[in-house]
Amino acid sequence: MENLGVFETLREAIVETLPELEPADIRADDTLRDLGANSVDRMNIISETLEAQDLKVSMVEFGELRTLQEIVDLIEKKRAAAAQ
């Protein structure tokens, strides 16, 4: 999973948690809530994405984010910082 892009990883974590969704139905401007994730699902999805990316980031930083794109952007930023 590590060689997947962040968005792909996030999408896999979403489908794993919400199997009624098709990957093709998941778009960058969706919010996790729109996709049917409850409050605990949302945190699980982010935590699993971070684990799949082997990225250690405090979950607190994701509190205010809404769309999948915003989540992806923060993870990309943290990944770039970690690589430096």
């Binding site: 699902d41 945190m43 699980n44 935590s47 971070l50 979950m59």
Partner: peptide, 16 residues
């Protein structure tokens, strides 16, 4: 086991 990899990987739903 997840904690040993990184404390931040502990699944949030484990709380309930």
């Amino acid at each position: 086991q997840k904690y040993q990899k990184s404390p931040s990987f502990v699944r949030p739903s484990y709380a309930h």
